[in-house]
């Protein structure tokens, strides 16, 4: 387990962040905090993918005019750039829905909203 900490620390952090994100989504009854949990989950997966392309001592993939010999893979970076922008778009839509839910129910607490809906 100790040697895993030395060689696989990024992957252990990925597992921890994904676990924390899932906890945030399921445990909190506040809708805004659920969305924060969703973002933490997402960043955990980004960490996994960016780490998979990393080479010890590798340079950023700027391929012309530099003397470095080893470059890290550019493809995971491209995928994560796209995923970050898509993630913020989804967060914006989710937060807009949260604002509308607050206008309709006057609360952001999931349990209270469920009670209001049962009473209707």
């Amino acid at each position: 387990m100790i040697d895993l900490l030395a060689t696989h620390y990024n992957y252990l952090m990925f597992v921890a962040l994904v676990g924390l994100g899932l906890y945030g989504v399921t445990a909190s009854s506040n809708l805004v905090k659920k969305i924060i949990g969703l973002n933490i989950f997402q960043v955990g997966i980004f960490l996994f993918i960016v780490t998979s392309g990393y080479i010890d001592g590798g340079s950023p993939p700027v391929v012309h005019g530099h003397g470095a010999e080893t470059y890290v893979s550019p493809l995971p970076h491209v995928l994560i750039l796209t995923a970050i922008v898509v993630g913020v778009s989804l967060t914006a839509v989710a937060l807009a829905l949260v604002v509308r839910i607050y206008e309709a129910y006057g609360t952001l607490d999931e349990d209270t909203i469920r009670e209001v809906r049962l009473n209707d």
Binding site: V50, T51, V88
Partner: peptide, 13 residues
């Protein structure tokens, strides 16, 4: 992790 483009996007976005 040698991903400056991702770092800039993460900081801004």
């Amino acid at each position: 992790l040698a991903a400056p483009d991702v770092a800039l996007t993460e900081a801004a976005v």
